[in-house]
Design a protein around this nucleic acid. Structure first.
Lengths: 222, 222
DNA sequence: GTCTATAATAAGATAGAC
DNA sequence: GTCTATCTTATTATAGAC
């Protein structure tokens, strides 16, 4: 009953079965499946079997390429962190009038978190683990400098022009912006349920986007 | 080899072994152990065996009192949600000048989150589960009204006196306050690691407390 | 490089004595 | 009400053929 090769010589030494051998594609396929599973279930809740089911390949390949569940998780983490910071550098804040620059940065941050629930969820999960896997990855720490330097430039310029207060710390302002943008995504389920708000509604979203802009600008105002 | 009772009649029908029978205490003991475990590991990461080890009793008792891991988790959730709201009602905001009332509410919220990392972590975990266990508990939803009514009263009074803007929504303001207070606790590990901030430092804490007060007051300002 | 089958163990839940 | 011992299933990880 085993399907031994036909007696007449095969034209090529083609792969025996299944899909074409394609290491890069298989690896990427696994990584995408892992993103879905880890984002939905967290590290502890994720099942390697469930990841395998999401792929076009088998569980064995997961261990072949990634060695362990934890290592796969770290790669997922790096991938999702990488996505957000790459787009942030294209805002050209230095070309804008300070107040407009802040507005653009806040709106970008707001929309980005809103669109990338995956990122928000994995970060939450990471904090449940006391950030130990972020600490383990040297790549992640280095890619987050850009926001701060860009923001710092705008703040200085605004202060010099007299539209912003003196002595504002870019890190603090970044914290203020991030917290709102992050929280309304990360806590939408509990906050939404308890206070009966639907964060998916366009009207609510628009009001909140405007609100955080207004709030930050007022905070910076001289 | 079984330790059958001595032939001479025992003085009292005392408990056979181990500690004294004490249902309430045993139940509470389990609940406290469960809080520690669920808060640290999340629902998926928590192990019933680990909870049992934290108690002065056995795993069997966990199932005896709580039936399942999930039900135990729900009770933990209710317990932690209950703790926060009960204290909030003692602020007597209505007796204060509006700006002072806001300041007291913000500072209370800030300090409360800062002191109750457990609460913050369980809420994060709940959101990973799309808030399904919060939805399952009718108790939780009902206990969160008080903040909003208190805040609404202050906002109205402030608007009437001309110190605050008109038409501010208490829910939005609550969101603004909560997001900052929550985020700096929930994300302290990732944010702290990436930007090298130590949220435990008193100086940092004091600066942030003042910052969120200032930020909210400026947002409300007429 | 890829597959199927399986080992090894961990974890939720229960039996049954006392 | 409480304990020890155990059942059952799920889960990470690996062996070995092709």
């Amino acid at each position: 009953m085993t399907t031994t090769p036909a007696l007449c010589a095969a034209p090529e030494p083609a792969p025996r079965k299944g899909r074409k051998n394609n290491p890069e594609k298989t690896r990427e396929n696994i990584l995408q499946a892992a993103i879905s599973e880890f984002v939905q279930q967290g590290l502890a809740g994720a099942r390697v079997d469930a990841i395998a089911e999401r792929t076009q390949t088998s569980k064995r390949m997961i261990y072949y390429y990634f060695n362990s569940k934890e290592q796969l998780y770290v790669e997922v983490l790096e991938k999702l962190y990488g996505d957000i910071r790459s787009t942030e550098s294209n805002l050209h804040l230095a070309e804008l009038e300070p107040r407009l620059g802040i507005r653009r940065l806040v709106e970008f941050t707001f929309d980005h978190h809103d669109r990338n629930v995956d990122f928000v969820r994995i970060v939450c999960n990471e904090n449940m683990h006391h950030g130990e896997y972020v600490k383990r990855s040297s790549a992640i720490r280095s890619m987050n400098k850009s926001v701060l330097t860009a923001l710092d430039e705008v703040l200085r310029r605004g202060a010099a022009e007299g539209v912003f207060r003196q002595g504002l710390d870019a890190l603090d302002v970044h914290l203020l912006i991030s917290s709102f943008c992050f929280y309304r995504v990360s806590n939408r389920h509990t906050f939404g349920e308890i206070f009966q708000v639907d964060f998916e509604e366009t009207a609510v979203k628009d009001r909140h986007r405007e609100m955080i802009c207004e709030s930050v600008l007022r905070f910076l105002q001289a």
